[in-house]
Every structure is written in C-alpha cells, then in structure tokens.
Amino acid sequence: MDYLLQQLINGVTLGAVYGLIAIGYTMVYGIIGMINFAHGDIYMIGAFISLIGLLLVGVLGITYVPLALLLVLVLAVLFTAVYGWAVERLAYRPLRGSVKLAPLISAIGMSIVLQNYVQLAQGARVKPLQPIIRGGFDLSSANADYHVTLSYLQIIIVLLTVALMAGFTAVIKATPLGRAQRATEQDMTMASLLGIDVDRVISTTFVIGASLAAVAGLIVTLYYGVIDFYIGFVAGIKAFTAAVLGGIGSLPGAILGGLLIGLIEALWSGYFSIEYKDVAAFGVLVMVLIFRPTGLLGKPEIEKV
C-alpha cells in the first residue's frame, strides 16, 4: 500500500512535467496542424539554461532560495522563449503553404542542430547539480518498513504546474489573445480578414509553448539533478504521446495525457522493470494510434474545406 502510494506521488510529479511539455505540442498542432519536432529539444535547452542559471545565482551569492529560483525561472523562460520563436521563424514560417512534409523535415533538422549545439557548447558529459530544495513529509503508515516521502520539491512542482495550467486555460478561454488563437485555429484566412495578425499569433503560440517547456526543464533539473543534451528526445516523445493520448489539439487533453503517462511510467517501473519504462509509454502511443487516434478528449477530425 505504501509502495503504491509512493509510485503514485512520483507518477503525478512526472506527469506534471510531461503535461507542461505536451501543452506546447498540442497548441502548435492546434494552430498550424503540424507537430513541432524540435519541441523536445526546446525543453532540453530550457533545462540547460536553468542549470546555467542555478550555477550563476550560486556564483552571485544569492542564497535566499525562493529569490534564486524565481530569478532562474525568469531567465530560463526568457531565453528558451527566444529559441522557440526562432524555431518558428526558421523552420516553419518560410515553408508555410508548402507541402506538409517540408516543415516537418526542417523541424527535425532544427532538433539535430539544437542537440549538437548544446553538445558542443556544454560537452556530452552528464551535468550534475547539488540538490537545492531538500526535505519533505514522511507519509509512511505506522511501523511500516517502507518509507513514503512526499518531498517539498514535489509539492512545489505540482502546485506550480497546476497554477500554470489553470492560468493558461483561463488565458485561452477569456482573453483577446486566447480568442485570436482559437479563431486562427478554426479558420486562419477568416481571422486575418478580421484584422488578426496571424503570423504574430503563431509566433506567440511557439513562444508560450517554449516558455512552459522551460518551466518543465527547470523542474527536471531540480528534481533529478542531472541533465544531458539528449534528454529532449525521450521526454519529447513521451510528452508527444501524452498530447496524442489526451487528444492532440486539446488543452485539457494534454494535461490529462501528461498525468496518465506519468502514472503509467511510474507504476510500470515500480512493479515491472525500470529498464523498460520507456516501452510502457511508447506502447500506449501505439495503442492509442490504433484504437482511438483522436485521443481521450479530442474532437473527431473535421475535414477542412
């Protein structure tokens, strides 16, 4: 029972990270109908900028942890957003209106460029980091020999994610930007006939996706304490799976999908085999694509005229 509880706690934490990355996939797909194949690497960039930021605040002697984390968060979001913006400008915008395969290939190219760039700039070795937020609650039941802990960091991760997702859902639902995004998604030409600068809406969407991926990158850096230039690939595919599972294009779907993938992965590695934990997520992707391609909360594909 205690063991299960621990796996659930870990799964929800992991799910928060996948959910944050999945929002980027699902929003970009919603608006331009294409997968951003460089998004996993944008998340990896976010993790590296977070790591650099954490080392920097250490050098600067900022020891008050909340202030230090806030600074790193802002830094990571700002710089990662620039990378997200650049991916759209370089890999997608010049090819808009051409065959769908073209931007897909250029995005994969971007992904390779980003990985190699980080590998060259930062080295291929795994980057370790001292834990910054320690401690937590002991949730073990009386006289059990297995210890269940809910760390402070896990609480912060889940609260931060929930707050971001709630805030973001509200933006989409009730602000001019959110309306412009939904209008662009439903009929891009009509949106521009009404005075919407569609290019800017698409740029903003990439920037928002990258910002949320940066938060995920910071969280992972703090949570695992090690990152390398390759983390974007696996996390990217899992977050993509989460987006597809929830229903690609659906915002609540991305959040639900992230949570489910996190839980499946934690339970799988807790009860079966940690070596094959990635198999679980990919198995889910295959099953969803075969049996319910529109995902759990996705709308059936409407043929665009």
């Binding site: 001019p176 309306r179 412009a180 939904r182 209008a183 009404l194 005075g195 919407i196």
Partner: peptide, 9 residues
Amino acid sequence: ENLQMGAVA
C-alpha cells in the same frame, strides 16, 4: 465571441 473577433479591426 464571433462578434468579439469582428471588433478586432
């Protein structure tokens, strides 16, 4: 919301 979109211009 459709009418709000019309007001953008």
